[in-house]
Simulated assay, not measured.
Amino acid sequence: MSGRGDGSILKAVEGRDAFLRDLVGVVVLLLLVRAAEPLFLGPGYYATLSAHPYWIVVILAATQGGILTGIVGAAVATLLMDWPPRPVGVDITAHYVALAVVPVQWLLAAVIIGAFREGHMRREDALAADNALLVEMAEDLAAEIERLDAEIDALELDAATRADAGDRLRVAMNRQAGQAA
């Protein structure tokens, strides 16, 4: 296998693990928020609020994990939402449309915020890849510098020993010339 294929498989596994971790976090947080209402605040307290507490969880999910995590968070929040019964005399369609407004808002917020987050994640991945390439290039340049330094040292040593040998040869030749004369 090529190095590129191994990296994409590893990245896919890491991405799946991150998604599962985010998903478990969202579900646990939603269950905690759901359990807090009857335990600490009283049944039906969230219905009196102008903004449902699940908003925080859905926005956190989309901000942390992107579109898919945000959509799953919105879906789980919708399932856990306290759905009030239809009051007598209210049209069934109007009742369910009114109830669906908040979950649809959660879904839209998850998609919009998640899209921005995924754009950031793509840029972070590109920067990490660029950084890895630059680190590899720097290591290659450092290795090349070390190789060239070693080559220069060898050439200098060779030049120095050749100069000494040449000087000894000249001295020996001068002696021979001096003895012959």
Rank of each mutant, 00 (worst) to 15 (best):
L108C: 09
L157N: 14
E118M: 07
L99M: 15
V76I: 11
W83Q: 10
L79V: 08
V58E: 02
A94M: 04
A109G: 05
L107D: 00
Y45F: 14
R117K: 07
E136L: 13
V88N: 13
D149G: 04
R175D: 10
Q179V: 10
A74V: 02
G166T: 14
D91E: 08
L32K: 00
L157R: 15
V27Y: 01
D149L: 05
W106I: 12
G3W: 03
A163Q: 15
G5H: 09
V28W: 01
V27Q: 04
G3N: 05
A160Y: 07
G15W: 02
A159W: 08
Q105G: 00
T63Y: 13
L23E: 05
D125P: 02
L41P: 05
K11H: 09
D164Y: 08
Y46R: 01
G44T: 01
G7K: 04
A128E: 12
I56L: 15
I9N: 01
L80C: 04
T63R: 14
V111W: 08
S2H: 06
V27G: 00
V102E: 15
L41A: 12
A177V: 08
L141N: 09
G15N: 10
Y46W: 14
R168S: 11
I112L: 10
I113A: 06
I9H: 00
H52L: 14
P38W: 05
A62D: 00
E156I: 07
E14R: 11
L30T: 02
R123P: 03
D82K: 08
A128P: 05
A36T: 10
L148M: 11
P85C: 06
T69S: 15
G114E: 02
N131W: 04
V76L: 01
V33K: 01
A77W: 03
R123T: 06
I92E: 15
A160T: 14
L39D: 00
L49D: 00
H95I: 04
H95D: 07
A100M: 10
